[in-house]
Amino acid sequence: MAETVNITVNGTQHSKEVEGRTLLVHFLRDTLGLTGTHVGCDTSSCGACTVHINGKAVKSCSMLAAQADGKSITTIEGMANGDELHPLQESFREKHGLQCGFCTPGMIMTAADLLNHNPNPSETDIREALEGNICRCTGYHNIVEAIKDAAEKMAVPA
């Protein structure tokens, strides 16, 4: 049975028909063509599919598109402001917080959620916040550095 959903993604309102079983991540990737959100597992373990719903990090592989009806979603594509990168995006690049880039969108979305409620996280805070995201390339060292760096940047008003 098809469902009509009204979802705002990165500020744009979409009204689309979806199957009941369509997962949010597939709605974003296949219906809206926003392929920055990735699928890395099938057990809600890896966090590559992390997006924000109403400002909070969630795993878009573990919810139905229909559940997001009426909600506002931010994906990695919505993090930069035009050509101006989000401080986390900048810091991931500056601190070499990514290699293959596959887990990166999810990492950045999770980190953004952390910094939203903890603007000055410790190394332990950061590592714990990343509990739901797996990176196989970086050993996390530079991801931690990147998030620390972004926190510092965001603390100083531009």
């Binding site: 079983r21 099938d42 919810m63 139905l64 009426g70």
Partner: peptide, 26 residues
């Protein structure tokens, strides 16, 4: 269907295939 974080993973693996989910999360 509440948050769905137990049910949806099971549905994805087809360990569980209900005919309908009733979303009460909102």
């Amino acid at each position: 269907l509440a948050g769905g974080h137990s049910l949806i993973p099971a549905m994805k693996l087809r360990l569980n295939s209900p005919s309908m989910v009733i979303d009460i999360a909102n």
